[in-house]
């Protein structure tokens, strides 16, 4: 991705400097992964980020054609959020970011922790790795996005995502042009970290709109270092650095995440905050076997050949 430093600095200035690390422009232009740090002690739950996300990404939201095609078999459900576009207390195809609230007591002190929830943009995203259609993919700058022109709405990405983030809208997308009754069921939607704004050198709308500077964007290694620094300074806890093998969304909270996880409302469109092992770990380990197999096969053929020749020679000598 080519990105003009001047343009990025323009975005940086607009955001009031504190939310963008200085090396962000360089990192973005060199195709380095960018991550965001969310200091949950600062979030007041005002919803400015949710509103900004909705406004900025409205042009990407689904415009389904009705009536929807009749689906076979009949157990295939319609997922229609087009009449509930204002829902903002969970993730939907029209709401890619929402605030989760946890009222908890920790070490004798009461806390109200507000947690902006959206796609965490995993470093090795299972949604992109397991999408059979190439619709979900990761960009060099760490953004994981779903191509709405290609997605068939099979919801495999939602199934394999440890947080089940993507949300489906029926009646939109490529499946309508293929076999709408028999394959696919719309398009999956989720946060794309304002990829189009970032490509223009701007920062994601949620970061820019936040009056409390909850989020900071920058190169991942610097964001991780900053998260550890913040956690050390405040006695805080980190989530997202190692979850699912590492994500590009790092939360720092004054309250441990297992306590927050117990206090938040969870369910469809409302992701948990539990520890998540690397979903792709087995594939990462097995890859070496797959890559070594051709070499091993050729070597085995060579060795059997050598052994055959030496056996024949031995046979000749014995005679």
């Amino acid at each position: 991705m080519s990105i003009s430093r001047r343009k990025f600095l323009h975005g940086l200035a607009a955001a009031g400097l504190t939310t963008v690390l200085p090396s962000t422009a360089r990192a973005a232009s060199q195709g380095e992964e960018l991550a965001t740090l969310l200091d949950l002690s600062k979030c007041i739950g005002c919803g400015a980020c949710v509103e900004a996300c909705k406004e900025t990404n409205a042009h990407k939201f689904p415009r389904p054609k009705k009536p929807f095609p009749r689906m076979y078999p009949s157990r295939v459900k319609v997922f229609d959020w087009s009449d509930k576009q204002d829902v903002d207390d969970r993730l939907t195809p029209y709401n890619w970011l929402y605030i989760q609230t946890a009222n908890v007591t920790w070490q004798g002190k009461e806390y109200e922790i507000n947690i902006p929830r959206r796609c965490l943009h995993c470093q090795n995203p299972p949604c992109a790795n397991l999408c059979p259609w190439g619709a979900a993919s990761k960009q060099a700058n760490g953004i994981v996005r779903i191509n709405d022109k290609i997605c068939l709405g099979g919801a495999k990405c939602k199934n394999v995502c440890p947080w089940h983030i993507p949300e489906r809208q029926t009646g939109v997308g490529l499946y309508l042009k293929l076999l709408p009754s028999f394959a696919g069921n719309g398009v999956m939607y989720k946060c794309d970290r304002c990829f189009d704004r970032v490509a223009k050198g701007l920062i994601p709308a949620c970061i820019e709109a936040c009056p409390e500077n909850v989020q900071t964007i920058g190169p991942r290694d610097e964001i991780v270092a900053r998260a550890h620094e913040l956690a050390k300074k405040t006695g805080g806890y980190i989530y997202g650095e190692k979850e699912n093998g590492g994500t590009n969304t790092i939360y720092v909270s004054p309250v441990p995440f297992d306590i927050l996880d117990q206090a938040i409302e969870k369910g469809p469109g409302r992701p948990h905050l539990s520890p998540v092992p690397n979903s792709m770990a087995r594939e990462e380990n097995l890859a070496m076997a797959v890559l070594a197999a051709p070499v091993a096969g050729l070597a085995a053929a060579l060795l059997t050949g050598v052994s055959k020749v030496s056996q024949e020679k031995q046979g000749d000598k014995d005679e």
Partner: peptide, 14 residues
């Protein structure tokens, strides 16, 4: 796939 690759390349080598 690992088994298939080993098999194919073993046969190819031979």
């Amino acid at each position: 796939a690992t088994i298939l690759l080993f098999w194919i390349f073993f046969r190819l080598g031979k």
